[in-house]
């Protein structure tokens, strides 16, 4: 059993032994006192400057960092430093690479897509594949997704590492001055960048042979999800 402490507090804040008595009891004099090393020599705060006036003494000591000429009259509140750091996102356990997901929101709602990998932002990287149902490489939030129990074995597929959050970040276009032609004329068609097209083709080429292996899987991905009569989303197994 642990020994009862010698120096019990009498009341909160006042202990039985005084500071010197505790020092004696603990025999702290036998121990080496930690020696605090003197900090490195301080940097010079002043410098000598030559003064060229006829009646001035030649040189003068001047502060290296000039004292501010303006002080705020009131105290300026300092914003608190946050000590919180973002935790890495956790993906639902039912979503693993190769899982077929049903998209619930956005342009491609109702589509069945293949989950490729989770990104550091917590978004899911999915693709239709585009060849099959038109859904390109895309990031989706896992909240807007139903995970089915159908899985595609993509354990041997190497998804290009450069497909990350930065890859999908939209590039800001320079704002141009509004001219009559730009406003009233036809808007120039946005062109898909060639790198995107190439990446899509690469990923599709990786997935298609696997999809081909299981019969009807291609048709399954091509069909969109919907509930029919008598089907309740909470009651069905997906």
């Amino acid at each position: 059993m642990a020994r009862a402490p010698r120096n019990t507090p009498l009341v909160p804040g006042v202990s039985t032994l005084s500071r010197s008595a505790a020092y004696k009891k603990k025999a702290l004099f036998k121990r080496k006192k930690p020696v605090h090393k003197a900090t490195v020599a301080t940097k010079a705060t002043t410098k000598s400057v030559k003064v060229t006036g006829p009646k001035n003494g030649g040189t003068r000591q001047v502060d290296v960092v000039k004292a501010p000429r303006y002080y705020a009259a009131d105290d300026v509140a300092q914003p608190k430093k946050t000590r919180k750091t973002p935790r890495p996102a956790t993906i639902r356990s039912s979503i693993t690479p190769g899982t077929v997901l049903i998209l619930l929101a956005g342009r491609f709602r109702g589509k069945r897509v293949v989950f490729l990998k989770s990104l550091s932002s917590g978004l899911l990287l999915v693709t239709g594949p585009r060849k099959i149902n038109g859904v390109p490489l895309r990031r989706v939030n896992q909240a807007y997704v139903i995970a089915t129990s159908t899985k595609l074995d993509i354990s041997k597929v190497k998804i290009p590492a450069h497909l990350d959050d930065a890859y999908f970040k939209p590039t800001k276009e320079q704002k141009q001055k509004a001219t009559e032609a730009a406003l009233l004329g036809e808007a120039p068609k946005k062109e898909v960048s060639t790198t995107r097209v190439k990446d899509q083709k690469d990923v599709d080429a990786l997935l298609l042979p696997i999809i081909k292996k299981s019969p009807l899987f291609k048709q399954y991905l091509n069909a969109s999800f919907s509930l029919t009569k008598g089907q309740y989303p909470h009651a069905i197994k997906v």
């Binding site: 077929v100 049903i102 069945r112 089915t148 129990s149 159908t150 009807l216 899987f217 048709q219 399954y220 069909a223 999800f225 069905i236 197994k237 997906v238």
Partner: peptide, 8 residues
């Protein structure tokens, strides 16, 4: 039945 089974 799973979603895929229902499709089949």
């Amino acid at each position: 039945l799973t979603d895929f089974d229902r499709f089949k």
